[in-house]
């Protein structure tokens, strides 16, 4: 199995690792059983993701996709962040081995979960905006 240089770079030097103590939204997806958990923290100012941090338990691809996903949504309006697809994350990483594609799904879901939590905290029903987050098919 071969990882791209971009994946290795994001694994070796992950961007935006950590927690946001006073986060406006926190999302956690995945489970320990299948070996991947992603936790995403967002800070929202005027509908824009002003800060984002993550913590990930998982393989190299899981760490790299978390890192890349945070880079892609930082400074973006919520609506735009919601449009981020796992495909875009994979492309930005210059590809992933086929067995690792589920990790990129997890990154997309983690963002949606964090935004969903943000809306819930605002007293807004997230379902019509974010939709069902679903579960990783491989983990079921």
């Amino acid at each position: 199995m071969i990882y791209s240089e971009k994946v290795m770079d994001h694994f070796a030097n992950p961007r935006n690792v950590g927690e946001i103590e006073d986060a406006d939204g926190v999302g956690e997806v995945g489970n320990a059983k299948c070996g991947d958990i992603m936790k995403m923290y967002i800070k929202v100012d005027n509908g824009v993701i002003s800060d984002v941090k993550f913590k990930t338990f998982g393989c190299g691809a899981a760490v790299a996709t978390s890192s890349m996903a945070t880079e892609l949504i930082k400074g973006k309006p919520l609506e735009e962040a919601l449009k981020l697809t796992n495909k875009a994350v994979v492309e930005a990483l210059e590809g992933l081995p086929p067995v690792k594609l589920h990790c990129s799904v997890l990154a997309e879901q983690a963002i949606k979960a964090a935004i969903s939590d943000y809306y819930t905290r605002q007293g807004i029903d997230p379902l019509p905006i974010v939709g069902e987050i679903g579960e990783c098919e491989d983990c079921q």
Binding site: M8, F11, D36, F57, G58, C59, G60, A62
Partner: peptide
């Protein structure tokens, strides 16, 4: 506990 094996191997390789 709390660590995934593949990332452990990748980091050890570094």
């Amino acid at each position: 506990r709390g660590i995934e094996g593949e990332s452990l191997l990748l980091m050890l390789d570094m």
